[in-house]
Simulated assay, not measured.
Amino acid sequence: MSSPTSQNKIQNIPVTLLRFDPLNPRIPIEIDGSDENEVIEYLLAEANIDDLMKSLLSQGYFQGEPLLVCPSNDNDDTYIVVEGNRRLGALKLINGFPPPRKENTIKAILSESTREIKEIPCIVYKAREEILGYLGYRHITGIKEWDHLAKARYLKQLYDKTTEEQKDNNLSSIEIYKILAKNIGSKYPSVENLLRGLEVLNFADDERILEDIGKRPNDIHFSLLTTALNNSSIKSYVSLDKEKPIDQNNVDSENTRNLLSWLYGDKEKNKIVRESREIQKLAKVIANDDSLNYLIKHQNENDILETSFTLAGGLLDGFEDGLNKINNNLTSLQELLTLVSDYLNEYHISELDSIQKKAKSLYVSARALVEDKE
């Protein structure tokens, strides 16, 4: 992929002719990306553009970082800023856009400088699609990475574009993922995982599941969702078929609601997954009908994931795995014994004595439990 300046010349364009990108992956879907007031309010709240204003007014605009733009479709000589919306927000405020929040802060910042920034360097592309590949390098695998949800939204745009371009070639979903991965310098399973996570999140939003559990898309810890959906049991539970194209799955509404409630909680129930490593336990619970039904009925009970995991046989697996490891380690130590005989001392005898006592105690306790059941 060529650099953004290798084929397009830099032009100075007035800030008044620049518009926000309504398809900006970083802007929450509940915000109208074409409404300057809404976008700037969000950027002030979440992107610290007031701090960026200070920098721009102090140092001026760095000519080496032009905005990447394309003509808008309104035939009014305006341009859509595809790369650089945060900078555009700061520049709009510098040029007198009424701040929808932090009004006193913005006034104070403007009062401390007389610098004017009326025009800024831009690289003009014919269409937004020409810039998408560069965004992937910069914000997915580059030095200014977006969060996981913004990455997924960007990849969905690239996925739709690529699918349309390749519609006559009958490519499989995996082949499309590989094209995307190559374009952005990533691996195709990572691309698939982000897109599948977004598919479920968008489904939950469209079906008002998020509203039902009291969440908005940007409230969701998206990487936790993608980690969960990377597990085959959980993917099957919500009816995601990796062979089907994005947005063509018959995602299970009730099970999706359960999953999101377990991961994030809802208006009435507590979340049960406190960290990503507990997803393996949840997957084992889901794979067992008895433990799954118990979890659904008793979600608000203390330590419900551990209890359900026990019902699924998780603790027994752990116990048996531990016994196997101990047995294997003891076999290995027995084989090493003659090789280290010249180095043995009282410390080793003491450790072996401790192991012997613990093993005997464990045996006696287990024997008693088995006999009690008989």
Rank of each mutant, 00 (worst) to 15 (best):
I234T: 04
N250F: 14
L259G: 11
L263W: 06
L210A: 13
D219Y: 15
S232C: 08
A228P: 02
P217L: 03
S253H: 15
W262I: 00
E211R: 02
N250H: 10
T227P: 11
L259D: 05
S261E: 14
L224D: 04
S233F: 10
H221K: 03
Y264L: 12
H221Y: 03
G214A: 05
L229G: 02
W262R: 06
K215E: 05
E243V: 12
D241H: 09
K269W: 08
S233C: 03
L259P: 03
L240Y: 13
L260Q: 00
V238Y: 00
D241Y: 03
S233I: 09
I213Y: 07
S223W: 14
K235M: 01
S253K: 13
G265L: 04
Q248S: 08
N249V: 06
K242H: 03
I220Q: 04
E243Y: 02
I246Q: 08
L263G: 05
D241F: 00
N231G: 02
K269N: 15
L210E: 03
S239V: 08
I234L: 00
N250P: 12
Y237N: 13
L225K: 02
V251L: 06
P217G: 07
S223A: 13
S233T: 05
V251D: 05
N258I: 08
E211F: 14
N218A: 07
D241Q: 02
N249E: 04
K267V: 04
N218P: 02
D241A: 13
R216V: 12
N230T: 13
I220L: 09
L263K: 00
D252A: 04
S236E: 03
V238D: 01
S261M: 07
L210Q: 11
D212A: 10
R216F: 14
N250D: 11
K267L: 06
L240D: 14
V238K: 00
T227G: 07
K215M: 14
D241L: 09
K235F: 11
Y264V: 09
K267M: 00
E211L: 01
I209A: 13
H221G: 04
K244W: 03
